[in-house]
Nucleic acid binder design. Structure first.
Lengths: 182, 182
DNA sequence: AGGCGTGGCTATTGACTATAGCCTAAAGCT
DNA sequence: AGCTTTAGGCTATAGTCAATAGCCACGCCT
């Protein structure tokens, strides 16, 4: 698992092949099946680890903060971690199989951190679900486009990220004061 | 190309194999190489088509509208088109090879529509670049998570999308009035 | 009639996932 | 001490894909 994680970060999740992993471990490719059921199962295991790690990173970043400040710290930690560990990050996006309790729990842990932070913005109940989706979408979309090389223009990408987070924070707090505009 | 597009929408871009496409066309797999250079080249061609189509869909949706209303219409059209044509949508995200003029132009066309709409919100110059990135990130992130099955909770996903767009619109206009919070 | 381009085809290679079935060495039992 | 089980390797092999090489037939244009 450790080797798989490292390899995924190095070569990208899509290039994490069992052949490459076996070679990395100095072992023949079929031997890996003594440890995993399938490539998909490997991805799932990596996902559980990565989601757990991400939840902890986010929780640490937001610890002791509240409101807009907490959101900004969380967002910054999210992007930093994702850029530092592209393989791990890619696998966190995988939705869990609803029957897989461990994976579901790991996914929920990430969502829980975000929800807690939004709570500190005063967003609760079913508003929190929608707000969490909005924030997650923005963060993930940015990462997806950034790592896909989607931001061609010379403007600073970090600056864009900070501004996006500010926009979302402003929108979330405005929405609270004004009700939900339609 | 037509068949490839249709197949991609039906089975998903990742399952658009040359073998399947050849079968669909009633032809042997190597014969396809008389028409395309590689699978990657096929993706690139599909991308140019899809980006062009998306730009036109977005332009139509936003035509005759301005301000927040235009953004909402554009966003709704984006999601609708993406959900209706998942294969086409997926290929839209591919960043163009900088040396591929056609692909670069098609990508720019999409960005141009978004930029025009943001202009009608009063966002211009280098602010527009950051705002475009923010809006695109949100829209794409939402679609990516939605199509990956990432929204497990029962809350209405369409409602989440509308709220996210409202949040971003509110954030963009607030940011204008208040300067850029940091 | 000759020449050529278009668009098929078979055969084959090489990367990859996955399965079947064999072997060995250490662990644990009696 | 001797037997058995199990963990973890291995080879061989099948099946799916993309991709290349090289062949052939048809139609068109001179």
């Amino acid at each position: 698992m450790d080797a798989a994680q490292r390899l995924a970060d190095e070569v990208g999740l899509e290039n994490l092949t069992l052949t490459a992993l076996a070679e990395d471990l100095g072992v023949r490719q079929p031997s890996l099946y003594k440890h995993i059921d399938s490539l998909d199962h490997l991805h799932r295991s990596l996902a559980v680890r990565a989601k757990t790690e991400l939840a902890s990173v986010l929780a640490t970043a937001a610890a002791g903060r509240a409101g807009p400040d907490a959101v900004r710290e969380l967002a910054a930690a999210y992007r930093e971690w994702g850029l530092a560990h592209p393989g791990r990050y890619a696998v966190t996006v995988r939705a869990p199989d609803p029957g897989d309790a461990q994976d579901v729990a790991a996914s929920a842990a990430v969502v829980a951190v975000v929800t807690r932070v939004l709570e500190s913005l005063g967003i609760v109940r079913e508003d929190a679900v929608h707000a969490t989706r909005a924030l997650r979408s923005s963060l993930h979309g940015f990462m997806a486009l950034e790592t896909a090389g989607g931001f061609g223009l010379p403007e600073d990408v970090g600056e864009s990220f900070r501004r996006m987070v500010d926009i979302v924070v402003a929108g979330l707090t405005t929405g609270l004061r004004a009700g939900h505009p339609r």
